[in-house]
Write a protein that binds this DNA or RNA. Sequence first.
DNA 1: TATTGTTATACTCTATAACTATA
DNA 2: TATAGTTATAGAGTATAACAATA
Lengths: 124, 124
Amino acid sequence: MASRRVKAERGDAGLPDPQFNVLAMLHAHGAMTPGQLAEAERIQPPSMTRTVNCLVELGLVAKTEHPTDGRQVLVDLTEAGRAEVHETRRRRDAWLTGRLSQLTADERARLGEAVELLRRIAAS
Amino acid sequence: MASRRVKAERGDAGLPDPQFNVLAMLHAHGAMTPGQLAEAERIQPPSMTRTVNCLVELGLVAKTEHPTDGRQVLVDLTEAGRAEVHETRRRRDAWLTGRLSQLTADERARLGEAVELLRRIAAS
DNA sequence: TATTGTTATACTCTATAACTATA
DNA sequence: TATAGTTATAGAGTATAACAATA
């Protein structure tokens, strides 16, 4: 499967996929609660607690209190976390670009269309 | 991701993905050694030993001695294993068919072309 | 000596159930 | 009482290193 080949490209410096996905989600949406992150990644809250704690220990995200609801916690990227997102994307893009360069422009365009269709299916 | 939605469709009766993948591989290629299975799934031999043993305990595969090389072991589907492959495929196909029916025939055709392109990328 | 497979050990991701704190 | 998050516990997948058996 292609997805496993992409993942394998994280190499030594990269994070496990679930951890990186959280960083990417925060990068795209800004600060989120653990509950929101769990729902977005379709995993249970305790699993997300674990992942977030791991990222906190690595200094890639930080928890802050919710301004009005003491039960909730806000998770957001640190500067190091933001740098990690950019670094990982750069590395993955380099690999994928190499692969895509083996296709014709027309083939790449068709691949792009297919991605949209798959997004629609996955969302339903 | 669509792949996670497909996997989620295994429901209560289904096997974890790596285990099912071994069944599917054996179904397609016939008996294989643990080493061949590990290479095909791109995991290390000890991991495959674990997965195969699990399937043996479930009665879905059986190990037999290699006819000429005493070091090697042959793994093959049992009847129950073959039935499991068919059952799981039937269930997954039912889900995917439902999703694909939301697309137009033209869109489905384009998706099929994209699959071929992705196969080429993954193989390289 | 090289190859095949296994055992030992450890880490990550996932889950469910039970608990704490706050609303 | 309901909600958000955590802790406790367990199962599955993966890996590397070390070992046994066979070629």
